[in-house]
């Protein structure tokens, strides 16, 4: 439905570089990335609010580049300043209908407002609405505009948790009703909760596009892994051994024994912090990976503690408070971390 082809754009000292993207009709596509990586810029470029220096954008099979914004039938909803402040909710929702000289304006406004749950606040001015109510009104206005693709720029960022959950339900329902949504956020939980497909942005580049499951199961860069909260993520090379079923993973600073079907080549390796044990001495037994290091940080987790141990690279270890303190551990202490070869998740 929406194809972004080799889009590049320079704005002051920041640039979007060679962005390629394909979004199918009915997708809920989340552009995920830290602040300032170019997510909103890409969104505005798709909407036609910025002109790319290179590349093409196709929507519904048509080249969009020379089509004026007002004829693209793409609605954009921002995080704040979502409504026209001098118009009440009814007038805001009616705005696109009047602009397009549509008939049955009142009927359409009421239908859109009912769909988003804002019909009881038609006379209210934007300044008197909560963040969640303003977003509902803005979504109703986009529905009234008849767009089948919504571009949402951090729509849930400045609203309270309760409204956020309600709006997520609304957004999912809108998506199920056939509206394609492109949603920009820096919140990976929001992405998991809503997306059917995710694009990860980093420094003006789209570094990874895949289904939500694939992105979180198999991140393809340290940035992605760290950004989505995955710890103990390494990039390196795997080699097989002649007399063992174990493979050796070699990264810049560490060698790890692992069990993997892959024989050789460049791979990514992840180890769940819960699969690693921490001890004062090397643990005997079937565990093949032992590394001596120094405790760098201790952070409380929802359950237990996450201990960062520096073994040349930082490793996160998830332990119970009881176990940790009974071993007399603290920041600066030398310890051993131990994990099985089978705990390593290797993929290419």
């Amino acid at each position: 439905m929406l194809i972004v082809e080799n889009i590049s754009l320079m704005v002051e000292d920041f640039s979007l570089n060679n962005i390629n993207l394909s979004i199918e009709k009915g997708d809920y596509f989340v552009l995920l990335g830290l602040s300032g990586v170019g997510k909103s810029l890409l969104l505005e470029t798709i909407a036609g609010l910025r002109t790319p220096s290179e590349g093409n954008i196709f929507l519904r099979g048509k080249l969009l580049n020379s089509i004026p914004i007002q004829n693209r039938q793409i609605s954009i909803v921002y995080q704040d300043l979502v409504l026209f402040p001098h118009l009440n909710v009814y007038e805001n929702i009616a705005y696109p209908l009047k602009a397009m000289h549509a008939g049955d304006i009142e009927e359409k406004v009421i239908a859109a407002a009912t769909q988003t749950g804002i019909a009881d606040k038609m006379e209210r001015m934007p300044a008197s609405l909560s963040g969640g109510e303003a977003q509902r009104a803005a979504l109703a206005r986009s529905i009234a505009a008849g767009s089948d693709i919504f571009l949402l720029d951090e729509p849930l960022s400045s609203i309270d948790l309760k409204s956020k959950n309600e709006l997520r339900i609304l957004l999912r329902n809108l998506n199920r009703s056939g509206i394609t949504i492109v949603h920009v956020t820096h919140d990976y939980e929001e992405a998991i909760s809503l997306a059917t497909k995710i694009g990860i942005m980093e420094n003006g580049k789209l570094v990874h596009v895949d289904t939500t499951e694939e992105i979180f199961e198999h991140p393809k860069s340290e940035f992605v892994a760290h950004f989505i909260g995955i710890k103990n993520f390494l990039r390196g090379r795997i080699t097989k051994q002649t007399d063992s079923d174990l493979k050796i993973f070699v990264s810049e600073k560490i060698e790890i024994f692992c069990l993997s079907e892959l024989d050789e080549g460049n791979v990514f390796l992840m180890i769940d912090p819960k699969e690693i044990s921490i001890s004062n001495t090397v643990l005997e037994g079937s565990i093949r990976n032992h590394f001596k290091g120094r405790i760098k940080d201790i952070a409380p987790a929802r359950l237990g503690l996450v201990v960062t141990v520096d073994i040349g690279v930082d490793f996160a270890v998830h332990v119970s408070k009881d176990a940790f303190y009974s071993l007399g551990m603290n920041v600066g202490k030398d310890v051993w971390i131990n994990f099985k070869a089978s705990s390593c998740k290797v993929y290419n």
Binding site: G48, I69, Y95, A99, L151
Partner: peptide, 20 residues
């Protein structure tokens, strides 16, 4: 941004000027 939103809602630049 308000002018951009209005444009994306199908209003012409002239209409955006006079209504926003």
């Amino acid at each position: 941004r308000l002018e951009k939103i209005a444009l994306s809602l199908g209003a012409s630049p002239v209409r955006v000027f006079f209504t926003i």
